[in-house]
């Protein structure tokens, strides 16, 4: 396993035939032109195959979006993607079906997500700085402990954790969801940042050190700005995981006015007894929109993140 961070970027670009990027892509195009008709046919075939696979994969999601704009009684009669007349009432109905309007759940989810992102950014970057740059006793042992916790199933700790938070009176607050992030328990991100910091030339912070800077200043003024890509990756992954998280929110939030989006969707499913799929689909689409936007704008960081650490 070679370290992706330390390889020269040019070396990677050679194998990355991105149509938009300058001379390399142009070279490819020329090569294609020169190629015989047989291999062009092959390439076309490949594209057809890939497009079909992609279509099959995304079909259910596209159908979900289209169905949310159809009257409920039409949804299951029509497997196609063509809409004859737009029906926005599903959205307005779904928005108000539960005891609180859907905006409450979106706001709750947003609060949890923001808390988790801030927590992860601050605490994980601090821990990562220590592991990557500082010498301290027992460093290797603690590092192994940190790596091991990445693989620990949540079920082993959830019962006592639940008891602890409930005795502190924190059930039906967002604290049990956010506090673990403030305490850097997402070791995955610590590791991601350690890897990133290792790729930053040591000369930069050593120069600052000679100028008499303390570690807090080196961390805040030199390291953090250089770490922006890793911080962005962390923020984006935290967003998606927290937005989708169901298990811990199911345990800790039981009052309807505290529900987050996944809990609201589940309550919606129970409350409507399978008769009003239109509004349920509409709210499902609403719940997926933030993920989709993040995907659209943060893709670069997502790909970099999973290439480095294997996150989902």
């Amino acid at each position: 396993m070679t370290d992706t961070q330390t390889r020269p970027a040019a070396d990677q670009a050679k194998h990355l035939p991105d149509v938009r990027s300058g001379p390399v892509a142009r070279g490819n195009r020329k090569a294609l032109k020169r190629a015989s008709g047989r291999s062009t046919r092959k390439a076309v075939l490949k594209h057809i195959m890939l497009t079909l696979t992609g279509l099959v994969m995304l079909y259910p999601v596209l159908w979900l979006v289209v169905s949310s704009l159809r009257p409920t009684d039409e949804i299951f009669r029509n497997p196609g993607l063509v809409i004859s007349n737009l029906e926005f009432s599903n959205y307005s109905d779904g928005w108000t079906t539960l005891s609180s309007p859907f905006s409450v759940f979106l706001l709750n989810s947003t609060l949890v997500v923001v808390g988790c992102i801030v927590g992860n950014l601050v605490s994980c970057s601090m821990a990562a700085y220590a592991f990557a740059r500082l010498k301290f006793s027992g460093k290797r042992g603690w590092f192994v402990v940190m790596l091991t916790t990445i693989m620990l199933p949540i079920h082993v700790i959830i019962v006592p954790q639940y008891i602890m938070f409930s005795q502190l009176g924190w059930v039906n607050t967002f604290i049990p969801l956010i506090l673990p992030k403030i305490l850097a328990t997402d070791a995955f991100f610590v590791f991601l940042m350690v890897q990133f910091i290792r790729g930053i030339p040591r000369e930069l912070d050593e120069a600052a050190r000679l100028d008499g800077c303390g570690h807090p200043r080196i961390f805040a003024q030199i390291m953090l700005p250089l770490m922006t890509p890793a911080l962005a990756t962390t923020a984006i992954f935290t967003f998606i995981w927290t937005w989708n998280d169901f298990f811990s929110q199911l345990l800790y939030l039981t009052k309807p006015e505290m529900y987050t989006v996944p809990l609201a969707l589940r309550a919606f499913m129970d409350a409507t007894s399978a008769t009003s799929w239109g509004p349920l689909f509409a709210m499902s689409v609403v719940s997926l929109i933030p993920i989709f936007l993040i995907f659209l704008f943060g893709q670069r960081f997502l790909i970099a993140g999973i290439s480095t650490t294997g996150g989902k």
Binding site: L58, V61, L64, F281, S284, V285, I291, F295, I303, K312
Partner: peptide, 15 residues
């Protein structure tokens, strides 16, 4: 890649 991001959501389970 998109399905990997959506796959663990309640909305997709509903779907």
């Amino acid at each position: 890649y998109l399905p990997s991001l959506l796959g663990s959501s309640v909305a997709i389970a509903v779907l």
